[in-house]
């Protein structure tokens, strides 16, 4: 028991020194290679601690190797091309035309994922932003639309995303699908062409189709959300 205790102490000290030297950031801000190194280092430290038949030197050498790899990648990342290969490039997912579905597809993201990322930046409507960039560390950077002077007070409810009805939100908010279909028919828009359609309590509709820019308009008549 004492042996395991002492081995754990030693490994902890080695890990702490190495991670301090690496200058680790929070998990959410890690580059892909940093995440890989963190995952591998955890295993390298654990196995020698718990398995007495494995020399501690095995774990220490493994951890030091991860440190060397980390430093090497940081050095290589000074070259833009290498940085793009190792960490990828930031991708603009929202621009003045609206959601860039091609960019989302490249990032293996859905519109829902984008909306979630936007909410974490405290933006609840696409009307509030001009541009959104997905950084290589998974964070979303947003350029706000300064023309919107009032912050969004209502939450736009997604009704259609990527050509499919969002049945959960529709039933939860009592949205009449027929009315929405009528709106689309009036604008000669097919359901399959709708990238994103959302409405809020003030009957403000956000609509983006495959071949048109995003539009924001107030719907006349009865409220779509009951």
């Amino acid at each position: 028991m004492i042996i395991i205790f002492l081995r754990a102490l030693i490994m902890f000290t080695v890990l702490l020194v190495v991670i301090r030297l690496m200058g680790k950031r929070q998990i959410g801000e890690m580059e892909p290679f940093e995440l890989v190194i963190t995952l591998v280092i955890a295993d390298l430290a654990c196995i020698p601690v718990s398995d007495r038949t494995v020399p501690l030197t095995f774990g220490i050498v493994g951890i030091l190797t991860m440190f060397v790899i980390h430093q090497l990648i940081l050095l290589l990342s000074k070259n833009m091309r290498m940085q793009n290969i190792l960490s990828g490039k930031p991708v603009m997912v929202v621009d003045k035309s609206g959601i860039n579905t091609y960019a989302l597809h490249r990032l293996n993201m859905q519109v829902n994922d984008l909306l979630q990322a936007l909410r974490t930046t405290n933006h609840f409507s696409l009307e509030e932003i001009l541009y959104a960039i997905m950084e290589t560390n998974g964070q979303l950077t947003v350029v706000e639309n300064k023309q919107i002077t009032e912050k969004q007070q209502t939450l736009p409810v997604p009704v259609i995303m990527q050509g499919k009805w969002d049945e959960d939100d529709i039933s939860r908010n009592g949205i009449d699908k027929n009315k929405v279909q009528a709106l689309l028919k009036k604008r000669k828009i097919k359901l399959s062409h709708v990238v994103f359609l959302a409405v809020d309590e003030k009957n403000r509709m956000t609509l983006q189709t495959k071949n048109r820019s995003i539009s924001f308009e107030n719907i006349e008549g009865e409220k779509l959300i009951k």
Binding site: L21, F67, V68, H70, Q71, L72, L74, L75
Partner: peptide, 10 residues
């Protein structure tokens, strides 16, 4: 210092 530390470790 990071490069030096990396080289030393290597």
């Amino acid at each position: 210092k990071n490069v030096i530390a990396g080289l030393l470790a290597l």
